[in-house]
Nucleic acid binder design. Structure first.
Lengths: 107, 107
DNA sequence: GAAATATGCAACTCTGGAGTTGCATCGCTC
DNA sequence: GAGCGATGCAACTCCAGAGTTGCATATTTC
């Protein structure tokens, strides 16, 4: 189970947010496919993907020669919970969030 | 207006989350008061507070010799919006969030 | 089986974040 | 006004993150 640290740290990089965004739109993609759209080396993109995977936001599935990265929800839970808990205290707008997420992740 | 980068980066540090948490519970506190509860120098805590303030999550108000830090909501908006936008795409649970935040911050 | 393409690994540089220490400055209080 | 307690500033160390390059390995395809 990935920690809140890693999730927020992963989301703090614009390239990584863009990667998540792109994959969430276009579905599973390989590192090489993704790398084409960014002004950096394939290896740099791979590192970002690894970071995201480590944070529980992506997962890579090997398919023969390729590895396709898809979005997963594992990492979001704790970070969202934290934002909810503290956010609720200082912003009434987020209080509603608490009430709507809580039922789903009660246990 | 603080960027999403800074907000997530600010939240990625456990000490900073703890500071936010503490201030959101106990109300406005000074750097010296806060520093007592952490295993680091006052200056280190001040740096964290400055980072949080820069991200739009805290604001310091001078009162004579003291500076009291209180929680503000400025920074949360964009980060929450991003989480909502992308999160919606990959987790139905977060879709509700979108619907409840949108009315308040619909430009 | 050989060429082409994709991933994996390792070493390297560079920059910024986290924390420290020392000292200066400002405001309160007696 | 003198001392005390708080903040502010600056310089310094240390380390992890971001990106690079080069090469090795695996898999597809002809």
């Amino acid at each position: 189970m990935p920690g809140v640290d890693e999730v927020f740290a992963a989301l703090s990089d614009p390239t990584r947010r863009q990667l998540l965004d792109q994959i969430s739109r276009q579905g599973p993609l390989t590192a090489t496919q993704l790398a084409g759209g960014y002004p950096m080396s394939r290896q740099a993109v791979v590192k970002h993907l690894t970071t995201l995977a480590h944070a529980g936001l992506l997962a890579g599935e090997r398919q023969g020669r390729d590895v396709r990265y898809r979005v997963v929800t594992d990492g979001l839970g704790d970070a969202a919970a934290w934002l909810t808990e503290v956010g609720e205290r200082w912003d009434q707008r987020l209080a509603a969030l608490q009430r709507h997420l809580a039922p789903d992740r009660s246990t």
